[in-house]
Design a protein around this nucleic acid. Sequence first.
DNA 1: CCGACCTGCTGAACCGGATAAGTAAAATTG
DNA 2: CAATTTTACTTATCCGGTTCAGCAGGTCGG
Lengths: 340, 340
Amino acid sequence: MKRPTIADIAARAGVSKGAVSYALNGQRGVSETTRRRILAIAEEIGFNPHSAARALSGAPADTIGLALRRPARVLGFEPFYMELISGVEAELSARGQALMLQIVADADAEIDVHRRWWGERRVDGVLICDLRVDDPRIPVVTDLRLPAVVVGGPEGVGDLPHVWNNDAVALTETVEYLAALGHRRIARVAGLPDLWHTQVRASAFEGACARLGVSAALTVSTDYSGEEGARATRRLLSGETRPTAVIYDNDVMAIAGLGVAQEMGLTVPGDLSIVAFDDSSLCRLVHPALTALTRDIPAYGALAARQLLAAIAGQPVGSVEDTPAKLAPRASTGRPIAST
Amino acid sequence: MKRPTIADIAARAGVSKGAVSYALNGQRGVSETTRRRILAIAEEIGFNPHSAARALSGAPADTIGLALRRPARVLGFEPFYMELISGVEAELSARGQALMLQIVADADAEIDVHRRWWGERRVDGVLICDLRVDDPRIPVVTDLRLPAVVVGGPEGVGDLPHVWNNDAVALTETVEYLAALGHRRIARVAGLPDLWHTQVRASAFEGACARLGVSAALTVSTDYSGEEGARATRRLLSGETRPTAVIYDNDVMAIAGLGVAQEMGLTVPGDLSIVAFDDSSLCRLVHPALTALTRDIPAYGALAARQLLAAIAGQPVGSVEDTPAKLAPRASTGRPIAST
DNA sequence: CCGACCTGCTGAACCGGATAAGTAAAATTG
DNA sequence: CAATTTTACTTATCCGGTTCAGCAGGTCGG
């Protein structure tokens, strides 16, 4: 099946290529009668303009790029990304934009992808997720003048527009809540330490603990996988002064942690209170349901996509703060049983 | 920052555009010295060929398309897709191919996306997931001669190449195992009924149950979400003759079902045995760990991607059967406690 | 009744590569 | 050493759109 071109339409309508182009793009330069005739023919033969030909004449690619640097293994069970992507997609598909997704292995490949996308004009702009400390992507996209929106911040983003939520507020609220319940030994199972938001959460955690007289404020780093979440929990619960509450940096690790607690014969929340950062529906479905820091991740993705499209359109976009995660108390948190 | 073109390179090297093109593409027609000079300049100024210009001259888009028709809500916590995508990506990025992802709302939009991708030459081929009964995408991509590989089958795929696993074998094995443990009332919490693999699993389930004398073989349909999995479980466990074992069509629902059983005070596996189809790491991390039908989904995606790339390259590809899911018995299945 | 202006179109240039055809010089052959 | 082939290029064309300049023919004002 040969793809129809405007030349085919022009031939059938008995006009020039130029006239067809004007007609299809709603430009003036053709009479209403001719326009309708041309549109009818286009419809009939199922015409779609060749995106490359358009792009060659300076049209945008109508595509945005998202490069993720996480091992496949982790991506599979991290609901965060898929939720983010579906939010991004919802916004994009409503505006006829496409998403180019690339999963990369390391920082070099990540930068390479951005350079290539720019050079090949494959994307009009990019979303930058998983902002790291001294993130090399920031200077690269800045230099290239590739429109970009960082999902994260507000620090470490250079002059790039960004959308962020205030994890410090969320974590402080959580520590205050746990302290109010009577917890004095609180641990934190953190994600990758070179991510900005891990640092933000860490300092908020430490600050709040110090302020509230939480003595043992342990932090263990992980790669967000359930396995490491389980291992970290086992280590914490096997220590001399085991914590009475643990805050996990994602829901997958929290669920794994719950499994470990049950396996070790501890009651939740009696012996151990559990809080998850991010709240996929699994948190509500396990037993006991997990107290979690809820945020609307698809909405977050949609917001980022909107900002990026605005930036691509040349509108001024700056820093946008999404609503911070809210603590949703459920059955996994309670007063610690007096002991020690 | 202006994007460099071959004309820029040609000017700096003092040769024609044609010579540059030959040099960059490793074609004969330039001396080794000139080639090296040109390549050095290209490297220095960070040249990347404009993908649109290439595509216009008949080059492939080096992109494959994947349109998913699932509500954002479901995609978020279905590890299956993200695992599949990361497997696809692993294969693609190793070969310099990109992935175009689109999430669509309904069947019309789905077909529209394929038509548009084809018309706009945005993709060289597509993967078709979630094969439905009388799937309208099959005739469309066949008519368009758009290279496609169906992830599913082997029935209902028309003449399209496809990769599939034999879910019937996996489900039969599971029912046999449960029957051998002594279960006589087995229920199944199924996924979307218009998906082909749901039908395949259903008839395998019914066949095996009939053959093995499993009397009550109830099936409840869901949308794969944890919520519906939990509701279905509640209904099943509240019925007059409650099942002693439930097979879930995905792991998310199985975990939700485990939560419901615990909430209702039933012991697992004493009062209720649970089997999950698909085995994300959560199955191993909840307590008790879930018996699951394991398959390597990233490998499945990679296989599909390889087949699609072969089809695009014009190689003959037909039907490929991936290894069926294997039953991994864990702590959630056991002999039923005698009762009734 | 003539020039100015608008309408509705055509023709051609252009975007940035790939590539076929042409050409001059160098290398090989008989 | 002339004839032929090969090498190393250049020039021109093409892909399928967009867009600008041009150009008839009609309308209007003075």
